[in-house]
Design a protein around this nucleic acid. Structure first.
Length: 685
DNA sequence: ACGGCTCAGACG
DNA sequence: TCGTCTGAG
């Protein structure tokens, strides 16, 4: 539900910039032959020509619409070019569009506060820039208003055909306008210039709205498309809103808007004016009521956030209808001679059969025994299918958070799994599959492992001790709670490496050791992708400690003393717990609730939930040297830090490491002694 | 059995 | 806090 924000007293200049059929433009830039042609971007071409997700304006002229199928589009526009979105790991891959969007954001962020609102939209707060212009070079002093600005659409300005551009110039230069509209005029000129820069530097066109708040800017940015901008002068607001259908207002496109129509008889925003704030609050609660009252008057206090990057990364795929992940996709029928389901027909998956034929599955797993055995078997098989997809999704997610780490120095702290599932022939089939989350550990393999555990946990809750006939219709994994890594983190590195890297490592007994070029660091891809999927060129080159390859503790200490410690990788490796111990710990402390059979008690489970386990150590020492702003980053989970090793470090270093640790808020999470058990605190006070 | 895949934010 | 729900594009 929307909520009202206190509005700033000072007038603001806000712009909303919206790329024109963005995915199409990205494809047109990649293949210029598509320019000027009716074109649409589709995903999943196999079923009815795929679904359209972007349509060029030429194609729109033929009546092609978003959310037509490809076949349908061909019907109304036989000449249309259908471009498929890239596919990777069996799913749509939007990275091309994401990175193209970033190009645009980088330009638009140059003139003021910039908020990335979606892959192809931003809000700008141009207040300061507009004030500046009004002081330094007001529109009426400019001998020539830039062409693009003169092509603006001014809401409420009489748009007589040939005179329009002249009128617009006049409006932009009006010396008798009130202050706020003068600011808007400056904003319009700035936005026009920005849009030209975007076109020049990216070849993309965009449209924009310029107004005093986000709501109005957003409302008009799409009013004149493509490649145009629209300004909302103060005097035009009431007329504009009064005739605006409620459903057009952002946040009112869904149930709330419908409720306004059907429960209050409100058809336009203007109709809202006849309701008192109290009445609206009574109907929709204090927050939403006030919000409604205000938006009816063009008031919106929402600030433009200073944020160029997304707050979360998610990867998902749906498995609609017959493609649902289930144990009986291809039906084999087997009548059981004796079982509790003796009269029933049980199906099992082709995958399980194939496994059996390959000799990978033991006979006892095949459905020749009792009903229960058989159920286990079919579930195992479904798990395998789910795991396969989950692994794919996690692989993509891992890649995305790693490049976020390298390029933006941000760490995600929470991993969430969501699924949709349905039960066959169950009365309670309305029940939803619960989402589950846990602390996020970096590394493809770890993410895959944790995601699968989360899935099992969710499935357990979903099934509630029944276990037949379930299927999965969607899967997604999300990384969220993303924080900037604080700068000045690794004094430990400087300390250990010495003031400059030529100095001997202070921590080592042997005083002079040649600098080791981090050979012992294992790239995480190699570490964790056993079936070696097509390894792409690592332009996101990050490295992580491989716990697998850590020697045992004693050995580690010795190697530390004898060879010295060189570089972040060695240090992190040194700090980390050895792999088998780590595994034991995980099993006993249970970062994620492990699957519990029906009837097993849940109190232990309760105590082990939500144990923070994420930490990071980042070597930013060379980040200044990297021109791209991307530098190698080493990660270490705090749970992998060996407290015994830490104890041997100098006190100030110990203190620093302790500083990474935040006490668990969960008193039930019992720890032994000084076990490091918490996670790296986010960057801020 | 079809709009798929993302994102953000509010609420309890 | 986590999980659910709404809404947007």
């Amino acid at each position: 539900m929307p909520v009202a924000r206190p509005e700033p007293q000072e007038p603001r200049v806000i712009a909303h910039v919206d790329m024109d059929c963005f995915y199409v433009q990205v494809e047109q830039r990649r293949n210029p032959a598509l320019r000027g042609q009716p074109t649409a971007v589709v995903q999943y071409n196999d079923w009815k020509g795929g679904g359209l997700i972007a349509v060029s304006y030429e194609a729109r002229g033929f009546g092609v619409k978003r959310s037509m199928r490809g076949d349908e589009a061909k019907r109304v526009c036989p000449g249309i070019n259908l471009v498929q979105v890239p596919v990777a790991r069996g799913k749509a891959d939007l990275n091309l569009y994401r990175s193209s969007g970033s190009e645009v954001v980088a330009i638009l962020a140059s003139k003021g506060k910039c908020e990335r609102a979606s892959i192809d939209e931003v809000y700008l707060d141009l207040t300061e820039a507009a004030k500046e212009m009004l002081l330094q070079a007001p529109p009426d002093s400019l001998e020539e208003i830039c062409m693009e600005a003169a092509k603006s659409n001014i809401l409420g300005l009489s748009s007589d055909a040939s005179e329009k551009e002249k009128n617009v110039r006049a409006w932009l230069c009006r010396s008798d306008a009130d202050y706020q509209d003068k600011l808007l005029a400056c904003g319009a000129i700035i936005v026009a210039q920005l849009r030209i820069r975007v076109l020049e530097e990216t070849q993309f066109t965009c449209s924009a709205g310029i107004a005093h708040n986000k709501m109005l800017a957003k409302l008009v940015s799409g009013m004149h498309k493509p490649a145009q901008q629209t300004v909302v002068p103060l005097s035009s607001i009431q007329d504009f809103l009064s005739s605006l259908p409620v459903k057009k207002m952002k946040q009112l496109g869904g149930k709330l808007g419908s409720s306004l129509q059907y429960d209050l008889g409100v058809e336009t925003i203007g109709d809202l004016l006849s309701f008192s704030e109290e009445k609206l609050q009574e109907q929709y609660g204090a927050n939403t009521g006030t919000w409604l009252w205000k938006i009816a008057r063009g008031i919106s206090g929402e600030e433009v956030e200073d944020r160029l990057l997304p707050k979360s990364h998610g990867c998902g795929k749906t498995f609609p209808g017959p493609r649902a992940l289930k144990n009986n996709t291809s039906v084999r029928i087997l009548a059981l001679p004796f079982s509790s389901f003796s009269s029933k027909i049980i199906s099992y998956s082709l995958a399980a059969e194939a496994e059996y034929l390959r000799g990978r599955t033991r006979l006892s797993c095949m459905p020749i025994y009792l009903g229960m055995k058989q159920l286990e078997n079919t579930q195992l098989s479904t798990f395998r299918t789910v795991k396969g997809w989950l692994d794919q999704l996690c692989e993509e997610l891992s890649e995305r958070i790693q490049s976020d780490l390298n390029q933006n120095k941000r760490i995600a702290q929470t991993l969430t799994l969501h699924a949709r599932a349905s039960k066959k022939n169950e009365r309670d089939s309305m029940k939803k599959f619960p989402s589950k989350s846990c602390p996020l550990r970096y590394g493809t393999g770890k993410i895959q492992e944790d995601a699968m555990k989360l899935f099992e946990s969710g499935l357990h809750d979903f099934l509630e001790s029944q276990s037949t006939g379930w299927s999965i219709t969607s899967l997604s994994v999300t990384a969220s709670k993303i924080f900037d890594i604080p700068s000045g983190t690794s004094s430990i590195l400087r300390y250990i490496k010495g003031p400059n890297s030529s100095a001997p490592p202070a921590i080592s007994d042997s005083s002079s050791v040649p600098e080791d070029p981090s050979l012992d660091v294992t790239p995480i891809h190699e570490e964790q992708c056993e079936p070696s999927t097509s390894e792409k060129e690592d332009n996101n080159r990050y490295s992580a400690i491989s716990t697998k390859q850590c020697p045992a503790n004693e050995e580690k200490k010795n190697s530390m003393k004898s060879t010295g410690v060189k570089g972040a990788s060695s240090i992190l490796k040194f700090l980390s717990r050895d792999h088998s111990a780590h595994q034991e710990k995980r099993r006993s402390d249970g970062l994620i609730c492990s699957h519990q059979g029906p009837g097993s008690s849940s109190e232990a489970n309760e105590a082990e939930r939500n144990v923070p386990a994420q930490a990071a150590v980042v070597d930013r020492s060379n980040s200044g040297a990297e021109p791209s702003g991307s530098s190698n980053t080493w990660m270490l989970n705090v749970e992998d830090i060996d407290p015994a090793v830490v104890e041997e470090l100098p006190p100030e270093i110990q203190r620093e490491i302790q500083g990474w640790i935040r006490p668990s808020k969960h008193p039930t999470a019992k720890r032994r002694g000084s076990t490091i058990s918490s996670y790296f605190p986010p960057a801020r006070s």
